[in-house]
């Protein structure tokens, strides 16, 4: 089995993602090469940091087209945390910055009056038709969120001052606002199901 390509998006917790893959019996190859992103059998798009900064880095590395193409064509891809938000067109975190635009939506801030960042465990409810996602308790580390499951995707939701998108799936493409690699046995099982899905 080939190594899972993990996109070097900058200062993300790549070691945690790599460790989760290794516990599932797979090696991680951390890469910022457009060729790996286009042709890797399985790819993880992790993300920690600011929307505009990471989107800008993807452009600077010439990775945008390869990422959009593989997600649009349904090749196995796991986007985590900011990785999910990058699928949107834009984010209130970084006005003017351009996301991958795979999802027609703008990322918004968690509401005033709740703990921000959301750093901790929250209940997740999987919507109808999910194959990779199940109900459970997930570890989140975010201040921004996607508001609604877009057309054509299955999704799971959670609540932090109102409902938000906890995760999305479409075929072999899985995007988690939470960190499956840090969400205990439940999160590890999600990673393992994604590694099996064709």
């Amino acid at each position: 089995m080939s190594a899972v390509v993990v996109v070097r998006t900058g200062a993300a917790n790549l070691a945690s993602v790599a460790a989760a893959l290794r516990r599932a019996g797979r090696e991680a190859r951390i890469s910022a090469s457009a060729d790996d992103i286009a042709h890797g059998e399985r790819l993880v798009l992790p993300g920690v940091g600011a929307f505009g900064e990471v989107a800008g880095r993807l452009d600077a590395l010439g990775l945008r087209a390869a990422l959009v193409e593989r997600i649009a064509s349904g090749r196995p891809t796991l986007a985590i945390c900011l990785g999910l938000q990058l699928l949107a067109e834009a984010s209130d975190e970084s006005p003017g910055a351009r996301g991958l635009g795979v999802i027609e939506a703008t990322v918004t801030a968690l509401p005033e009056g709740v703990r921000r960042p959301q750093l901790g465990w929250n209940r997740v409810a999987a919507g109808p038709g999910c194959r990779l996602l199940t109900d459970g308790t997930a570890y989140f580390a975010n201040s921004f969120k996607l508001d609604a499951v877009p057309d054509g995707w299955r999704g799971a939701t959670a609540d932090h001052g109102g409902p938000f998108v906890a995760a999305l799936e479409r075929g072999a493409v899985l995007a988690c606002q939470f960190h499956p690699e840090l969400s205990g046995a439940w999160g590890q099982a999600i990673v393992e199901r994604w590694l099996e899905v064709a």
Partner: peptide, 12 residues
């Protein structure tokens, strides 16, 4: 840290 990370599926 590296050795703990390998076994820990939790935030560190």
């Amino acid at each position: 840290v590296a050795a703990v990370r390998a076994v820990l599926p939790l935030p560190l």
